[in-house]
Amino acid sequence: MKSTSRIVRLLAIAVVLALVVTTGVACKPEPQAEQPEVKIAFLYAIANPERAGGWDRADWPGIVYLRDELGWEVAIAENVAYSDSWNIARNYADNGYDIIVFPSNGFLDAYLEVAPEYPNTWFIMTSLTDTLPNSPRSAAWVPDMYMYGAVVGMIAAKASETGVIGVSGGMPIPVLELMYSGIIEGAKYVNPDARVIVSWAGDWVDIPKHREITELQIQQGADVIFTVTGPATTGVFEAAEAGGAKVIGYAADWYDDAPNAVLTSLIVDKKRMYVDMANQFLSDTLEKKMVMCGAEYFSIADFRGSLPDDKVAEIQDLFEKVKAGEIVIPVVEHPEVGP
């Protein structure tokens, strides 16, 4: 028995060593063709931003632009707990990164507190904020999430036959409560009888939970679904596909993920924010400011036959009028969407 356990022990050590070595190899950075001049870091709360929920996914074209077209060195911190974000941001600043980007409203406190400690590093927020840090090198591109919600509400109310719209979210954070108020008002603009059901899953990642929530909304008559969550978005698609409902994709084009379930997506052009930022940084014109990003940053993805052409035309027409300022949805907050 002694010899067996020794063999097992040796095997265990070998396996651990093999794992360490392979992980090390896998993590080794690919050699850069040329020495990058600018170093930029992004912080994400969940893993795999490229494939995760809508907002992080919408960042990806911007990251690709910075990395491949400008040749910047892009560092991405994934799975950053909100409580760790202070230290991770400081770490990047200490290591000579020129720009640190916070793409999520959840990092707001770290953004406001760490930026003043590093006056030579740019701190950028590309989400909802109403204040800038006390630092000369800080800027924010702030999307108008209420208007975003209003446009979603209009599309949903136009597309819905039952007049019931199912809206779900991961956590009831302020930006979502604002957006969902916009959905209610946008839907009522198109159809005064429209009913919006709002449900919260309690997290961003539990796919089965999101599936059950969406299914319940469909059982209550919802035929158009909208969700803002993390990797759990798949659960929403799964339920919609099974229940014959259609989903409006959030921030990025979701068609490839679920061709049978996606009605359209309301895309947020986050790449444009990063292109603006990069151009201003390179030409030394980047200054402390808050850029409000309204409907001109939004676009409706191709419907790909999910709606009759006349409906699509009506939706496009409404959207153009919102963009031109001809339709203004007054900001009415609905506290009942929150917890």
């Binding site: 494939r51 698609f237 799964e238 993920d257 679920a258």
Partner: peptide, 28 residues
Amino acid sequence: TSFIYKITVIRGVQLIGPATLISLAGPA
């Protein structure tokens, strides 16, 4: 599992398996 998932999955697209074993729901 996170590591394997990340390196095996086609970039940018979520996994959707066949529906043979699925527990039906809703109208279905």
